[in-house]
Design a protein around this nucleic acid. Structure first.
Length: 217
DNA sequence: GCGACAG
DNA sequence: ATCTTGTCGC
């Protein structure tokens, strides 16, 4: 992605162009490796650190870690969030020696105004299966989610299902799971639950968050 | 015009 | 995202 958009209009045009490349398919139900991606920012919002941590999906042990420092590539604008972190995340992905089979992003995939959030964006650019696990909603409505771990409710926007509101821990606020590229929602939710045996967020996200956070502080 | 608004 | 103390609970 050489000509990085410089205006919101250009960014939206890029999304409208790339979203046509999203592939909907079953996806790996039992991947051997899964990657968590996250970015941390300095207080002044001038610098950032992006991290990718690859875990063994069987025992959640760390197989590889890559982290890079850089600057935000775009201002934060809801709906255009990916343009801010994608360059740094691609740099980090390029430093990996272990190829992850699935990318798990901190944000949304198709649960986006134009159905092309960060997870979908990274999936298309890398060609890897990807999905997003967000902490808060960007778009959509949903019916109350059951209180027990594993309960889920359809996330619907504009009359169409765009993701799931999934309870990863009983009695804890649910997360927002949405498909990005080359994977289906049920598989994404199953993987998310498998990766979150104890905490609200999947270990992939927690591991990446911790790594980029201390490379900054 | 008034909210909502991934990280 | 980040700025920030204490506090309630297991």
């Amino acid at each position: 992605m050489q000509p990085w958009p410089r205006t919101e209009e250009e960014a939206r045009a890029v999304q409208d162009l790339l979203r046509a490349q999203v592939v909907a398919e079953p996806g790996p139900a039992s991947p051997a490796t899964v990657a968590g991606l996250d970015v941390a920012y300095s207080a002044d919002d001038d610098r950032l650190a992006a991290a990718v941590v690859v875990l063994d999906a069987a025992d959640l042990t760390v197989r590889d870690t890559a982290v890079v420092r850089g600057k935000p590539a775009f201002p934060y604008v809801p709906g255009l969030f990916a343009f801010r972190e994608v360059p740094a995340l691609l740099d980090a992905l390029g430093k990996l020696t272990v190829r992850p089979e699935v990318l798990i992003c901190d944000g949304h995939g198709l649960a986006h105004p134009r159905r092309f959030g960060l997870a979908a964006h990274l999936g298309v650019l890398t060609g890897l299966p990807s999905f997003g696990v967000g902490k808060t909603r960007l778009v959509g409505e949903w019916a109350p989610v059951g209180e027990t771990r594993g309960s889920r409710s359809a996330l619907v926007d504009g009359g169409e299902p765009v993701g799931a509101v999934l309870r990863t821990q009983t009695g804890v606020k649910p997360v927002f799971v949405s498909v990005g590229h080359r994977i289906d929602l049920d598989t994404a939710c199953a993987l998310t639950l498998r990766l979150a045996p104890r905490y609200r967020l999947p270990e992939t996200t927690r591991a990446a968050d911790r790594v980029c956070r201390d490379l900054l502080g």
